[in-house]
Amino acid sequence: MSRPLPARAARLGLYVLLAALSAGFLFPFYWLAVSALKSQGEIFAMPPAWLPIPPRWENFADIYRETNIVRAFLNSVIIAAGHVTLALLLCSLGGFAFAKYPGAPGARKLFAFVLGTMMIPGAVTLIPTFIVLTKLHMVNTYWALIVPGAAHAFGIFWMRQYVASHVPDDLLQAARIDGCSEFGIYWHVVLPIARPALAALGIMLLIGTWNNLMMAFLLLRTPEMQTLPLLMYLLQGETRTPFGMLMAGGLLTVVPMVIAFLLFQRQFIAGITAGAVKA
């Protein structure tokens, strides 16, 4: 179907504009990748080098040799996996309970209370949380970054909404008649059905915990406990920063989240918009 010329020109114009803006938004990633393949001199060359020719792969060898980046990567993975798993378990269990036991005395008030806790700003509780973690001897352990925040009020809300609207009561009743325990119902019936909601919540939690700098900075004290973002932060020197190496490490820190986002972007976006529409 052909359209009038002005309309087609307008459409083409919008495509060009969106393409240019997209390129602009992606440019810092491009610059990160290019800088990871440059020497210190090339990074600060004037005029700037748009392409790294020849590519300097030694930056990756340097960061592997001069820092404990493998350990930092593993630390980040362990903390992210631990935090996301624990939070998903707690949130789905709580969400299931709030969705499917409406007859329990106080259920509605307790749910309102859970929602209310979302309004507490983290800045107010930061110092006492730090003190609690010190008293529990969790400072400089993985637990310090895994456990706090695992009881996620939004996560409970999100799982409750999903379970309430996607898991039929009859199915639970049937499982019960077959002799399934209440926990068995949660594990064998609810969790498999709630997989899309778990994916959405999981990706949100993953991105939050992987990128976290402040808590890692406060709570992880020794080099062998550092996460990737913390290692990147500390690589910046007071006088001279090894930028080539830093950009190589930065790329390794960024890429996992880019992949995770591209794989789960539909679920992720569903999650954050649900938060907005319901709030």
């Binding site: 969106l18 803006l21 997209s22 390129a23 938004f25 992606l26 810092p28 990633f29 610059w31 990160l32 800088s35 990074i43 600060f44 991105i207 992987w210 990128n211 700098l213 990737l228 973002p229 990147m232 932060y233 910046q236 930028f243 830093l246 950009m247 930065g250 790329l251 820190t253 960024v254 989240m257 880019v258 995770a260 986002f261 591209l262 972007q265 992720f268 976006i269």
Partner: peptide, 26 residues
């Protein structure tokens, strides 16, 4: 594609991005 391009900045670790911006702002 466009949505991903605009959205990607907020899922990536700020510490790395801020260092890149530091270079761009030099």
């Amino acid at each position: 594609l466009f949505r991903s391009a605009f959205f990607l900045p907020c899922v990536t670790p700020m510490v790395v991005i801020a260092i890149v911006f530091g270079l761009l702002y030099s």
